[in-house]
Simulated scan of single mutants.
Amino acid sequence: MNGRLQRIWMLLRLAVAAFVGWRFGWAWGVATLALHAVVLAGGFVQLRWVNRPAPSWGQLWRAWRREVVASELAFSWRQPWREWAEADHLPPGAQVGVLLVHGFACNRGRWNGWMKRLRAQGVAFVAPSLEPVFGSIDDYAEEIEVGVRRLEAATGRMPVLCAHSMGGLALRAWWRRFGAGHAVPPRVITLGSPHGGTRMARLGQGINARQMRLRSPWVMELSLLTDVDCFWTPCDQVVNPAETAILACSRAHRVDGVGHMGLVHSDEAWDCLQEALRASGFQTALAGSSLSTPRRI
């Protein structure tokens, strides 16, 4: 469903740009396609007054440039057209597994770069597309549980859980509902997840957007996870104030010069996942693969 909506949106963008180009000149048509970059710029500029300490103009400039590319890659290519380009990977004899959970208004195509690299390493993974797109985050718990159980069946143990944005809240909602059924708590990595809610959720549509509002009752009542790495950036134009991306008692990792979508492309986040897999005792499974895997997604 989400992929279909994004395909429709992309085709509408192209149709409007083509009409503007035909009516007023093709330079204006190209400029129409670039309007999203202008909107993004406004989101970054306001962070100078929202976050304390404020990110520098240089950091915001680097983050904006990278975010234009990252958002176009996600919303114009991978999510609308390549959602199933990388199938779930459950190879026989897999020793380690990763569950990848996307964020608001996204789908599993968000993780295509990571899935390709994990497949090359021989690591099992499952990446669900959470539906309904604008439904309650609580409703995603069952699909996450199915993914966790599939990976447990394939590897014999709890997978490492990685989540971007809203996905981190979906994991906490899952643990609140299904945690009692698991003997071992998971190792969790969240990338720009609004653990304390976010100001920007007031601009979103749907039940899940309302749940993510800054310090909403729903957010404040979520279960805590005990073994968590939280990646955050002072240049996050979606999750702000910036400290809302840090869960209490977690290991916080600051990444400068990247925006919200760009966190998934950061070497720091990928390296943390590799460390989590090594900590699970699977050096043999990863030997010879992580060094040869390209650094960029």
Rank of each mutant, 00 (worst) to 15 (best):
N2R: 05
G3E: 14
I8S: 03
W9L: 13
L12D: 01
A17V: 00
V20T: 11
W22K: 06
V30N: 01
L35M: 14
H36A: 01
V39H: 09
A63S: 04
R65S: 11
V69G: 02
A74C: 15
P80S: 05
E83A: 15
E83Q: 15
D88Y: 13
H89M: 05
P91K: 00
Q95L: 07
G97A: 04
G109L: 04
W114E: 09
V123D: 06
A127W: 06
S129N: 08
P132V: 02
I144L: 15
G147W: 12
V148L: 08
R149V: 11
T155M: 12
G156D: 14
G156Y: 10
V160S: 12
W175P: 06
R176G: 15
H182S: 02
A183I: 12
R187M: 10
P194M: 04
R199F: 10
R199D: 03
R199G: 00
M200L: 09
M200D: 03
R202F: 11
I207Q: 13
I207R: 15
N208Q: 03
N208D: 05
R210D: 14
Q211L: 11
M212V: 09
M212F: 13
R213G: 13
L214Y: 12
W218T: 02
L222W: 06
T226H: 12
D229N: 04
I246M: 11
L247V: 13
S250Q: 07
A252Q: 11
V255T: 10
V255H: 13
V258Y: 03
G262P: 01
L273T: 00
F282L: 07
F282M: 08
A285S: 14
A287P: 00
S289M: 08
I297K: 05
